[in-house]
Write a protein that binds this DNA or RNA. Structure first.
Lengths: 255, 255
DNA sequence: TAGAGGAACTTGTACAAACAAGCGAGCACT
DNA sequence: AGTGCTCGCTTGTTTGTACAAGTTCCTCTA
């Protein structure tokens, strides 16, 4: 079942994206929205809270809410799945396992994933036919068998693992910085050694908080950017717009 | 006045950070928290929603909430102010204007800041005495006079502008990627040309949605990292922990 | 013993009502 | 003309209630 407030939020979002509420203009008051939708004020409030969290709308006590952006908030776009992100952006993409082996975890890894043997996988991902991402993922022992059963050119590991064992990546922690390309990075991505790469290190867990994997992902510079919207008051946010047409070859990851 | 749910959220956060609710354990149910604090369930719900948004707690229908992390969520830590971030992390920091001039805006700039003349400022920021950040900021015409009145070694532009004209940076949009250091970057940061830099491009606006500035900030690799927590369900989140002791020379920016 | 079924618990959604607090416009006064 | 104040509007906070929906665990049955 879809919640009422979700429907109202969707409708408002559509109106904003369609230009019915231009950037800088005021949104209707909660009272009016409530009357229009025949809903209680609390429900309407929950709806606009969604938009505020998305960074589409700004809110402060006493003043009407204003529209901050009309960019298509490509909805969820979790940070976890390269495939889901690429697909949402309408990109062609692919992936290939380069290397895969079991080994004992390092101290840092066992602290995050547990004591058992881990599975390390090196994947190369392509976007529009170009190699853009080197992914070094370390899986916890309990998911290792399922990962090993995947084909080497599996497009979406996230989706494949969901189909296979019902695994859901629910929570994630991410660290983003820049590093110089190493020898292997350079060879796989087709760039010079030492050239800049955008690195995303992450650890993900299930609903229950059970650790699944940690990963070190490195993007070729100029191919992908992370994008964030935030507001001072309360709900920070994450997620955001994509418009690739303006600068070909540069893509964005929604946060 | 501080809201009740904020107080409850603070108390819960402290408990988690203090280890009273270890990572992976269950939080008390809403009913129990309500009884304990003598508050209505709705209020408690709002409190835990804050923690969920911070990524400290995971939540799903039917099951008790679980603790996901015990990292010190250095609270707000807006993406806007280098000074505020550095101070919250207990760092020594400084800043120096290298160059400053008025000029006509480019097409992209006037689309974001308006048609008037803009003020471009080049600043070099230091952390622990080391140069780590080159900041190229373009201010809209209406803030230019106030910015020009600031001392060249102003520590916190954000705070200085607030004190001077009551300006509040309320909303921001950020784009994060990696670039190679240019000639000027290399000279200022003391690195080789072409070495990796972490770039953050941002546009900020006031409460009312009035554009204030756009900036291109470049961090020396290995000095700063961005950190994000997110969850699949709903509330994205932003903000996160800092622990520098483990990897000296590497710092984090809370998102 | 394995699996189905169900009861108790817990979080999610929705409505209603009241007051607090901040904003903005218009008004009166200087 | 400019200043300060008040009043209405709008968002923020809190309480209470009811039901929906998902989880967990125990029990009963085949």
């Amino acid at each position: 079942m879809v919640a009422r407030y979700e429907l109202i939020a969707d409708e408002l979002r559509e109106e904003i994206l369609a230009g019915a509420h231009p950037v800088g203009s005021q949104l209707p008051s909660e009272a009016e929205l409530a009357k229009r939708h025949g809903a209680a004020r609390g429900t309407v409030r929950q709806a606009v809270a969604v938009l505020v969290a998305e960074g589409l709308v700004g809110s402060r006590q006493g003043a009407r809410r204003i529209v901050l952006g009309a960019a298509r908030s490509q909805s969820f776009a979790e940070l976890h799945s390269f495939a889901q992100w690429a697909r949402a952006g309408g990109h062609r993409f692919g992936g290939q396992v380069i290397e895969q082996r079991r080994r004992r975890p390092s101290a840092a890894e066992s602290a995050r994933l547990g004591d058992g043997e881990v599975l390390e996988v090196l994947r190369l991902r392509t976007l529009e036919g170009e190699p853009v991402l080197v992914e070094r993922t370390v899986y916890a022992e309990w998911v290792a068998p399922a990962v090993e059963r995947l084909p080497a050119d599996c497009e979406s590991v996230t989706e494949a693992l969901y189909d296979a064992i019902g695994l859901v990546f629910a929570y994630g922690e991410h660290l983003i910085d820049a590093v110089a390309a190493g020898v292997q990075d350079a060879r796989l991505l087709g760039v010079r050694r030492g050239s800049p790469l955008l690195r995303q290190r992450r650890t993900t867990t299930t609903h229950e908080g059970r650790p699944v994997e940690t990963s070190d992902d490195r993007y070729r510079a100029g191919s992908v950017a992370f994008s964030i919207r935030n507001s001072i008051g309360a709900n920070p946010l994450v997620r955001q717009a994509i418009d690739l047409r303006s600068r070909p070859g540069e893509h964005m990851f929604d946060l």
